[in-house]
Design a protein around this nucleic acid. Structure first.
Ligand SMILES: [Mn+2]
Ligand SMILES: [Mn+2]
Ligand SMILES: [Zn+2]
Ligand SMILES: [Zn+2]
Lengths: 142, 142
DNA sequence: TCAATAGCCTGGAATCGTTCCAAATTTAAT
DNA sequence: ATTAAATTTGGAACGATTCCAGGCTATTGA
């Protein structure tokens, strides 16, 4: 199945080509699914489950492969919260996160809603890849 | 072996008692080891290996139990970097981190070396448990 | 001082998210 | 259409962490 002719998927196909990834059926469908529905934070398992729910035929290994490839190409970004808990973020612009511990849920914070200033310079021989701010929240009462 | 009489370990014993943890041989030795040598970031496996190297007899399960208990009691803090990569931090005061991707190493940044201001308020029903800033570094050349 | 009891430690099995593998399929180039 | 290279797949393997049940150990209070 060559997916370059289906109008529904042209955006996903183009994005994949630009990222240097072959627009295979699985990648196209997964990227399309990821991008439908605004900014999201989802685990590999979330995506696999969603894909299955709408009838896509994609193995879990391929979901992992695709998510990692998308992340490496800059189509996604990964946010790690705890050992065994990481989310793929469809919002690749600069921003920060609230993390609701109880709900295990991330929520975006616009980058200009937090000011991180006076960063120390990157140590010799290194450069800053990313500045991550995570505000961990717990429920108020107790 | 009751360790309350050994002068070498009084600090560790007292800290454990204050934290509401029984000062067992394993906990005392591990906490003592953790606190010898300044601020450190080490994995459970690092600590198990160090313990073995100096001749302590502690199982890996106990190292995990102790690290988790110490973290819950505020004697340590945990910093998660990637799925399967987390470090226990003997520096429990407020501070931030550089992370050297290649070396998989954390380095402290004094809290006053970074200014994080204008934080958005915690959403209704929640309160801020911690604000984490991680500056991810990659090597400069390539 | 010395049971009695609650808590702790341990090795090994189990869990769980993720990666690896090799065979079958699909894509892209000729 | 042919071919080579890349991709997908189910299942096995992996590695970090947790669980478990049986044997110790610290604490307490008689
Ligand atoms: Mn990953
Ligand atoms: Mn933990
Ligand atoms: Zn986000
Ligand atoms: Zn630190």
């Amino acid at each position: 199945m060559i997916m370059t002719r289906d109008r529904t998927f042209t955006l996903a196909v183009d994005a994949l080509k630009e990222a240097g990834l072959r627009p295979t059926r699985q990648r196209v469908q997964l990227l399309h699914l990821l991008r439908a529905g605004g900014n999201r934070h989802l685990s590999a398992d979330d995506l696999a489950r969603e894909a299955k729910k709408i009838g896509l035929s994609v193995s879990l290994a391929t979901v992992y492969n695709a998510l990692n490839q998308f992340t490496q190409s800059g189509l996604l970004r990964e946010v790690v919260i705890a050992p065994g808990i990481s989310y793929f973020d469809t919002n690749i612009g600069p921003h920060h996160h609230f993390y609701f511990e109880e709900e295990r849920r991330l929520q975006d914070i616009p980058v200009d809603a937090v000011s991180v200033s006076d960063l120390p310079p990157a140590p010799m021989g290194t450069k800053v890849a990313r500045v991550e701010v995570v505000i961990r929240l717990e429920s108020e009462q107790k």
